[in-house]
Amino acid sequence: MDVLSQVLAAMRTGRPRFLRTECHLPWRRHYPPVPGAGLHVILQGSCHLIPPAGDPIELGVGDVVLLPHGRGHEMVGDPDAPLVEVESPSGDEFRLQQHTGPGRTDGSPPSAVLLSGMFPIDETQCHPVVNDLPEIIHLPAHLGQHPPLRAAIDQISGELQHPGIGSDGVLSALLDALLLYILRAWYQDHGTGPGWGPALNDPEISAVLCRIHNNPERQWTVESLGAEAGLSRAAFARRFTALVGQPPLSYLTWSRMGAAAQILRDSEEPLGIVAQKVGYTSEFAFSNAFKRMHGAAPGAYRRRNRSLSLR
């Protein structure tokens, strides 16, 4: 599995939740902060996104907006309309619903149809691949740009218009794919800027990151990781630290604790087995490292987070 897919899987604490909203003028909706990444896709019409700070963003049909840090914001069809507060999503109540926004209900077409969603994320294990992103990512619907992303949006729109057997699972999978396409598009377009773009776009360092995430149980050393990149120990350590922002073994520990958290959320495997799967021969050493990273012992973390992964 590639590093982007792996780190997203480690951060996620549940399935994406979403809502289709038909908005009739005049309308203005406030979306509160969410514990994860927020999403809007404009399926029909146009509107504006009003961030907490900065200028409004004009949105048209096919546009995608990702709020990686879950900040609160407004979606507006008419700035003079009364503000309607959108309830924070919880459980499955944010899934496969179709709400008609305030305004005319005389059968006239809506001024905008929105697909809004959120991806639950463990904020204690939020990876730099997300932390380094801006507050708002806006991907306009330019013809011919990022074809896989556009295809995913078309599939989502079609599934919402003509739901059938298994639509819930199909939409959940499509939203997962949509998130990856958005991040791929962003990092492809910003591969030379600050943050994690250069690391993901560097073939040797990206390959090492994949090895770390795919094989956390291996007894990695700086030398063996450097060999995976085809670099000397010193050259690899310098390059890795410069691109990733921390030394190789520090990142290895961090990623192991993320993998352990995911196993604890998603399974009932004994702690000794979890420790072995992330490269620890001692359950005691594993428990201490996990508590330093997450602020709770593995067993307590599992009890607190197990139910979230089932939502």
Rank of each mutant, 00 (worst) to 15 (best):
T21I: 10
M257K: 04
L139C: 03
L139Y: 00
T253A: 11
F290P: 01
E228C: 15
Y251F: 11
P102Y: 03
E159F: 06
G101N: 01
N215W: 14
A300N: 10
P134E: 08
A207K: 15
L264F: 03
V41L: 05
A242N: 10
N305T: 14
Q6R: 14
P82Y: 11
V76W: 04
R233Y: 07
T221F: 11
A141G: 06
H127V: 07
P33T: 03
L115P: 02
V7P: 11
R239D: 05
H24Y: 03
Q145T: 13
A285V: 09
F119V: 04
V130S: 07
K291L: 11
I136N: 01
K277R: 15
A296E: 12
Q219T: 13
L83R: 05
A235H: 12
I165E: 15
G279Q: 06
P128K: 12
A234H: 14
Q161I: 12
Y301H: 12
V86I: 07
G279N: 06
E283K: 13
A275S: 13
Q276S: 12
M1F: 13
P147K: 11
P56R: 02
G245T: 06
F284S: 14
D2T: 15
A296H: 09
A53P: 04
P26T: 04
E74L: 08
A261K: 01
R15M: 13
L308S: 15
E87R: 00
G158S: 12
G107E: 03
L225E: 07
L271G: 12
H69I: 00
S157G: 13
V61A: 08
G258W: 02
P216T: 06
Q262K: 11
R302H: 07
F290L: 06
